[in-house]
Write a protein that binds this DNA or RNA. Structure first.
Lengths: 212, 212
DNA sequence: GATGTTATCTAAACACCGTCCAGATCGGAC
DNA sequence: GTCCGATCTGGACGGTGTTTAGATAACATC
């Protein structure tokens, strides 16, 4: 076998077609958006027949779920990076929100697939609430630090859910045309995001501008 | 041009097919969900050929937009009803949120179509920010009363956007399985919604349970 | 090394989809 | 009554998700 172009050797029929399909799907998503993401297009992009994916995924949904999974991992990493920047716990909350929304702006098609899957299943990815270092737990632990020990666990959980809902809502609507005047008045998109997120605080916290 | 015609829709062959199609679409949406909402299915439900809708809508998107439009009107009415219940301004804010989310729970497929259209257009329905009695303005005016006169208009607008984002996020995620334990612990879905919404306040306001 | 097994992939087909086109039908203006 | 234009139909085209039968190639066993 002489596959000169790619240094990678192909051990058998196609190699790791499963991964190749997920990569192809992600590529199509970035290049042409969610409406172009057909199973046949993915197979085409990967250079296989339209029926080939069915040996690796039960149906289209299962492929999209795999795509969504890598999306959630990337989102988690983006938010973890924020924590390592080592700001104080007050600003951290807003910065986590900004990181979340900015991820959705950088990968709008991927973000859409992620949440479309979640809404179809009526659940976030499994283990999101429990796994250490998940984005969700990161937010919850940050809330716990902000709140102090006298706040009940139930309230921590409710605040986390509230923040998550708000971040998701902002992720889906931040680009809406109606907000453009306000965005420009505040001097750019990040300022706009911080402005909105600063109105979402709990436990007396309202973002990077401390309450007097 | 013509004298008595109030609307430009006129009953010809079929009668008011345009309205019949929108109604048929809404019916399919409630009965079988968004994935079953094909243009052909709508035509079938209305008893016409698959090509008939093209004399009333440019394409499928335009039909969905009409469906979304009636959805937004119904949502606006549901929220207006809350205001007429005449609670004090403090609880009103939470009740508006509850009404919003409950609407999305009663008509999940319709709500999905509404926001899918908005995201494709990257904008809320036209005039939502300006039209008196729109749901959006209702929230903004409520915030203005809560905030008092010393709060800047920019902050009112930001708080409104934040509340809207949070309500939308909660509308899309309130049914997620991960929240079931907490939902039951709080004694039902409405209590859960109120709990989440109570962590979203601004201007020192945090829902129906006043801050101590 | 030849054998059989099994996973992998292809080709062809099915039903459905959105959309367009040529023609049939019919309401209303002249 | 004649004509025009809006409305609807039947049929077609290319695309989609999915299934089936059959070809191919890597692997385990002898």
């Amino acid at each position: 076998m002489s596959t000169a172009a790619v240094a990678d050797t192909r051990p058998y029929h196609h190699g790791d077609l499963r991964r190749a399909l997920v990569d192809a799907a992600a590529r199509i998503l970035e290049r042409e958006g969610p409406s172009a993401l057909s199973l046949r297009a993915v197979a085409r992009e990967a250079g296989v027949s339209p029926a080939a994916p069915y040996h690796h995924f039960k149906d289209k949904n299962e492929l999209l779920e795999a795509v969504a999974h890598v999306g959630w991992e990337a989102l988690g990493e983006a938010m973890l990076e924020v924590r390592q920047n080592g700001t104080d716990v007050q600003t951290l909350m807003t910065e986590l929100g900004v990181a979340y929304v900015c991820f959705s702006q950088r990968h709008p098609a991927l973000y859409r697939v992620m949440y479309d899957r979640s809404r179809d299943k009526d659940s976030l990815p499994e283990g999101m609430q429990d796994k250490e270092d998940s984005a969700y737990c990161l937010v919850r632990e940050t809330f716990r630090k902000v709140a102090g020990p006298e706040v009940a666990d139930v309230d921590i959980e409710l605040a986390t859910i509230a923040a998550w809902c708000a971040a998701h809502g902002l992720a889906e609507m931040s680009g809406f045309a109606q907000f453009n005047p306000l965005r420009e008045a505040l001097g750019g998109d990040e300022a706009f995001l911080r402005g909105v997120l600063s109105h979402l605080g709990s436990f007396g916290y309202r973002g990077h501008e401390p309450v007097k």
